[in-house]
Amino acid sequence: MSEFVKRIGEWCTAIIETTGVVLIAVLALYTLLFAAFRLYNHADAEEVFRDTRQRLGRGILLGLELFIAADVIHSAVVEVNFETVGVLAIIIVIRTFLSFSLEVELNGRWPWQNRE
């Protein structure tokens, strides 16, 4: 693989990872400010708590998806060998487990279960 393609892959990976970090940080800040505003306006504290958890969880899930995409690009373009593919597989398994755990925590069901 050419050096140019590797450099493009490195840049894409860095941009996607940075986007994931910024997205999580911005959504967390927005969520906390929105919750504070609602509490200031005398909203039900329990409802604000549930809504805040939902919004934070969604932001983290979106960020995790971006991190997985960056890892795939990095492993496929920048470093192609059995070791990096194995590390990628482990990272994807861990992040997928985190995503499923967050989904269950947020919605009370597995992603493949029907909504009732």
Score class of each variant (00 low, 15 high):
103 E>F: 15
4 F>Q: 11
61 L>E: 12
111 P>G: 03
86 G>T: 14
17 E>A: 11
22 V>H: 06
77 V>N: 04
46 E>L: 00
37 F>A: 10
91 I>C: 05
40 Y>W: 12
105 E>M: 14
95 R>S: 10
61 L>N: 11
70 A>R: 06
87 V>A: 07
36 A>E: 08
101 S>E: 12
22 V>S: 12
68 I>Y: 02
12 C>N: 08
116 E>T: 10
10 E>Q: 10
97 F>W: 13
23 L>I: 07
41 N>L: 05
57 G>A: 04
24 I>N: 05
65 E>I: 09
84 T>R: 15
48 V>L: 00
90 I>G: 11
94 I>E: 10
28 A>G: 11
72 V>E: 05
11 W>L: 13
48 V>S: 00
68 I>P: 02
11 W>E: 09
75 S>V: 02
73 I>N: 07
32 L>D: 03
37 F>I: 02
81 N>Y: 07
66 L>C: 10
21 V>R: 09
19 T>L: 15
62 L>E: 07
114 N>E: 14
61 L>P: 00
34 F>T: 11
87 V>H: 10
49 F>H: 03
108 G>A: 11
34 F>N: 13
29 L>R: 04
6 K>L: 06
7 R>M: 12
67 F>T: 03
28 A>T: 15
107 N>Y: 15
66 L>P: 02
109 R>M: 08
13 T>L: 01
75 S>E: 05
108 G>F: 09
52 T>I: 01
77 V>K: 02
41 N>S: 08
38 R>M: 08
45 A>C: 00
51 D>C: 00
83 E>R: 14
75 S>T: 15
111 P>T: 12
99 S>K: 13
53 R>M: 07
99 S>I: 13
7 R>S: 12
51 D>G: 00
95 R>F: 09
43 A>M: 02
72 V>N: 02
11 W>F: 14
6 K>H: 05
22 V>Q: 05
104 V>C: 10
92 I>M: 14
